[in-house]
Amino acid sequence: MNMLEIDDLHVTVDGKEILKGITLSIPAGEVHAIMGPNGSGKSTLSYTLAGRDGYEVTGGHMYYNGEDLGALLPEQRAAKGVFLALQYPVEIPGVATLTFLKTALNAQRRARGETELDALRTLKLVRQKATALNINEDMLRRPLNAGFSGGEKKRLEILQMALFEPKLAILDETDSGLDIDALKLVAEGVNALRAPSRAMLVITHYQRLLSYIVPDRVHVLAKGRIVKSGGADLALELEESGYERVVEVA
């Protein structure tokens, strides 16, 4: 059984159809990349998988481990192991980062019927995962994402991924706004989480990220449809010839 099975998915936002029949399967252990030009529906796909309000599924299905994702609330999807790293992580002044991490971690544990972690154990766990991502105590004490640099925000997304240990991770343009050093650090963090039991969907505009996170499959999304699929080489091909050509040929 595939970890994620998307079948002829149609999605409408504000009355406009953005996804027009997407079919895609990702088995556990694989990393798939979705590439596409601006406006192709990449972010719509990620928000729909995570369950954001306003992204209406008007046709088709999304199955996660055989379960209909569309029937679950965003928080239920998270507790079951679906994680979305956002392109633009939200700033929330007034909520300390560590408090947020503890609240989210325990909410997921509670939903799964696991015991909650106390403050000390949470802190230990967070510290242990944070070091590898070069996230210090000071950052954890600051309000969530408030005043964080682009790189800090993305590292914090990856820290959450490491902390929550999802089964399906969706990374939405995690490379945007990162310089090469930050990109490498984030990619290392992601690669460390590759595992036979975990599937990943990496959404990106540029090939650059895929030099560091090498995918098993690459899919090209254009105008709400997957127009081409291939191996890791397809990303390089796109980089050389550009989206326009690939989309035309398809």
């Binding site: 309000d53 609330l73 928080e75 998270a78 507790a79 947020f100 609240t103 989210a104 971690l105 909410a107």
Partner: peptide, 13 residues
């Protein structure tokens, strides 16, 4: 945006 972010991290509405 903030509400979705928190919910997508597992925090009930």
């Amino acid at each position: 945006d903030a509400l979705f972010y928190l919910r997508a991290r597992g925090i009930p509405e």
